[in-house]
């Protein structure tokens, strides 16, 4: 008995699994089952559905092969949504991620008064529903009685007043900035935790050598925060591709589909135009884009970020 235990007790998972067969089977099977039911099955079914034409109601689905994908290649709304997603991603990477990092840095470097209060305030919107955020900004940016336009006029910046959701040139950016406002707390909290793990002595050493804050951010903090940045970039990427709530509440893709993004296009095609097969094909494309971007980011841009 003792000899068989010691034979498998080599400190590896395989050794453990051989000694505790039931625990291992149960521990692996349950999460696998949950994953298969709630993530695996929808993905597989979406891929399956993308080869059919179906209105969501008819008992029979019509097999169309790759026709949905062929249609997609010539759909201008798909390209508008794709470009909008790219713009959304860029705004999200620049605005909330940079701002989140800067807020985390100034809090960690104790350059602000009451850092805990600031942290709470910045993180608070993350806990809010995006629907509630959307409704709130619908009031704040209302062209007739919105607080933001009133504020701009009262400080003499009336020339900046716009139809924030109505002007096709800026509507998408308005949405992305609102999304960024709600999302800033997330990178901030990640970076704040990450900065706590950066050895204080490396900052002290840089200070003694004469580094200012900009140099410390560039040469000391950010290079040591690459794993955190990698996670945040991934999260931002997936959040951007999933953008839906704010558009549904604020613009519904208007004006002229200029604020449409892929997530909202899937919803429109599936539930408004009753083209579930085409909606599924769009979803598969989102999945492929997300996977490819993640692979490129981790494999090239952030290569080795998790090597400690």
């Amino acid at each position: 008995m003792a000899s068989s235990a010691s034979r498998f007790d080599d400190g590896t998972f395989v050794g453990f699994a051989r000694r505790h067969v039931f625990v291992t089977m149960f521990g692996v099977a349950v999460p696998l089952l949950v994953f298969a039911c709630f993530i695996g099955y929808p993905i597989v079914y979406t891929i399956y559905l993308s080869f059919f034409e179906w209105n969501g109601m008819a008992p029979q689905k019509k097999f169309v092969g790759l026709a949905n994908y062929a249609y997609l290649l010539h759909d201008k709304y798909f390209y508008i949504a794709l470009v909008n997603n790219a713009k959304w991603l860029i705004v999200s990477l620049v605005f909330p991620v940079s701002l989140g990092f800067l807020i985390a840095y100034v809090m960690k470097a104790r350059l602000v008064f009451a850092p805990s209060l600031l942290r709470t305030i910045v993180f608070f919107p993350v806990t809010m529903s995006l629907i509630a955020v959307g409704l709130m900004f619908l009031l704040i940016l209302n062209p007739v009685f919105g607080a933001f336009d009133t504020l701009l006029r009262s400080v003499g910046l009336g020339f900046l007043v716009h139809e924030w959701f109505g002007d096709y040139r800026i509507a998408l950016y308005t949405l992305a900035v609102i999304s960024g406002w709600a999302f800033t707390g997330m990178p901030m909290i990640f970076y704040f935790a990450g900065l706590g793990d950066v050895p204080k002595e490396t900052f002290d050493a840089a200070r003694i050598e004469g580094a200012g804050h900009w140099r410390m951010i560039r040469s000391v903090a950010l290079p040591q925060l690459r794993p955190v940045t990698a996670i945040i970039v991934m999260l931002t990427l997936f959040e951007s591709l999933r953008a839906f709530d704010l558009i549904a509440v604020l613009t519904k893709g208007a004006p002229f589909g200029m604020t449409n993004v892929l997530g909202y296009l899937v919803y429109m095609e599936s539930f408004w135009n009753s083209r579930f097969g085409y909606g599924a094909a769009l979803s598969v494309v989102i999945l492929v884009i997300a996977g490819s971007l993640a692979a490129v980011l981790l494999g090239k841009v952030l290569k080795g970020a998790f090597d400690v």
Binding site: E201, T202, D204, A205, A206, S219, V220, P223
Partner: peptide, 10 residues
């Protein structure tokens, strides 16, 4: 420094 405080990425 006690921990040498070398910049690990350099």
């Amino acid at each position: 420094f006690q921990s040498y405080a070398l910049f690990p990425h350099m």
